[in-house]
Amino acid sequence: MGRRYLSLALLTEGASDQWFLVPLIDRQITELALEAPVGFDYSGVDVGECFTVAHRDLVACQVTDLLCYYDIVMIHHDHNERGKVDAIRDRFPDDAHRIVALVPVRETEAWMLADPAALKEAAPTRDAAWEVPHDVEKAADPKAVLKAALGGRRDAERDFGRLGQTVALDALRKVPAYRAWTAELRRAMERLHFL
Rank of each mutant, 00 (worst) to 15 (best):
L67G: 00
E49C: 03
A180V: 07
E157R: 14
H134W: 02
E13L: 13
A177S: 15
A129V: 05
L113M: 05
W19M: 04
W19K: 05
R173P: 12
H76M: 13
L113G: 00
G48D: 02
V63D: 01
E121A: 14
V47S: 08
V100L: 11
F92P: 01
P133S: 14
L24W: 09
D141Y: 11
I99W: 05
C50I: 09
D141M: 07
A122G: 05
G39K: 03
A87N: 02
V132G: 12
V175C: 10
E49F: 01
H77S: 01
E121P: 00
M1T: 11
G44M: 12
R162I: 03
V73L: 03
D78T: 08
A122T: 10
A180M: 11
A148E: 13
T166Q: 09
K138I: 00
E49M: 00
A183I: 01
T52Y: 12
E35G: 11
G152R: 07
T12A: 15
R27V: 08
L119C: 12
L58T: 08
V22A: 15
L146Q: 08
R4G: 14
G161P: 05
H76D: 04
I25Q: 12
P104S: 10
L8D: 01
W130S: 08
A140V: 11
R3K: 15
G48T: 02
A87M: 04
E81L: 04
A128W: 03
L172S: 12
A118F: 04
L21G: 08
K147S: 15
H76K: 14
R27E: 06
A101Q: 02
M112N: 02
V103N: 02
T108Y: 08
E190S: 13
F20C: 09
R191P: 00
R27W: 04
A101G: 14
F51G: 12
W111A: 06
R186V: 07
D17R: 13
D159A: 15
L172P: 07
F160D: 00
A144I: 05
A149P: 09
A110L: 03
T52M: 09
T166H: 06
A15W: 00
